[in-house]
Design a protein around this nucleic acid. Structure first.
Lengths: 130, 130
DNA sequence: CTTAATAATGATAATGGTTACTATTATTAG
DNA sequence: CTAATAATAGTAACCATTATCATTATTAAG
């Protein structure tokens, strides 16, 4: 889980792909897209690199109620929404409330390093269907 | 995943155990504790009942960065903290911000049913050790 | 108090996302 | 160019959770 020290074209392709997407793909989605350019890339390589990049703070891992993690190339603090219809993960474009973390730290005495705010419900598409 | 319709002593024991705990045990922890009273209870029964109770809104499922879910007998809206040292999940005793959800719904157009706020970092114990 | 219908259980196999392992390949410093 | 070693591909293993199914327990009706 250490930061990458040697270049690899696979890692570059993975990061490039993630940056090109506004949604937040799962490892499997990344894998299947990268395969178009690098047909023999291994799923393990995708996971390894996503983990490395996340550990290095270059990308963000999003753990939602679903069982599969999603990944986000935007590491600026922002909020997410997970649709219980399609399991898609989208951004919520509102400015973060830093006072939330401050308040929580005051109240708890814990060393709070991160605040994850995840909304859930139904997205535009699923709102109508369900 | 439907609500329970028949009584079972196993379910009662699981719910009673959950209510007795301030931390938020995993299915496995519930299983091992219930086993002291009901030695031949099955892990599947624990999972089945935790799922039912959560679906019925009687308990809360907490999905954290760790790989295993935690369960909470308190369904009042409140915030949680997950320690990256010991993977424990604790309550944060501060009043919720309902305006968060309202704002997010305005901005996004999604039907937001739930807001999950999860802080993470180091708890009192792990703060010193790490 | 039976009895019949069926929900719940225990035991265990299966599933699915993720990680570990290992021989091979690619990068990089000297 | 060469040696050292990080990264990879392919695949087996892992582990939390779920599905399956024969058996048991609950419950409503007679």
């Amino acid at each position: 889980m250490s930061a990458p020290v040697k270049y690899s074209s696979q890692r570059e392709a993975i990061l490039r792909f993630l940056k090109s997407r506004k949604d937040h793909p799962t490892a499997d989605v990344v894998f299947h897209h990268i395969r178009k350019d690098i047909p023999n890339i291994s799923l393990a390589t995708v996971y390894r690199n996503l983990n490395q990049l996340a550990a290095a703070g270059i990308i963000l891992r999003l753990t939602t109620d679903g069982k599969t993690d999603h990944f986000d190339a935007c590491v600026e603090p922002h909020y997410h929404f997970c649709c219980r219809g399609c399991n898609g993960v989208m951004d919520i474009d509102m400015e973060p409330f830093p006072e939330l973390t401050k308040k929580a730290e005051e109240v708890s005495n814990y060393k709070i390093e991160q605040a994850t705010i995840l909304f859930s419900g139904l997205c535009d598409c699923c709102k109508d269907k369900l």
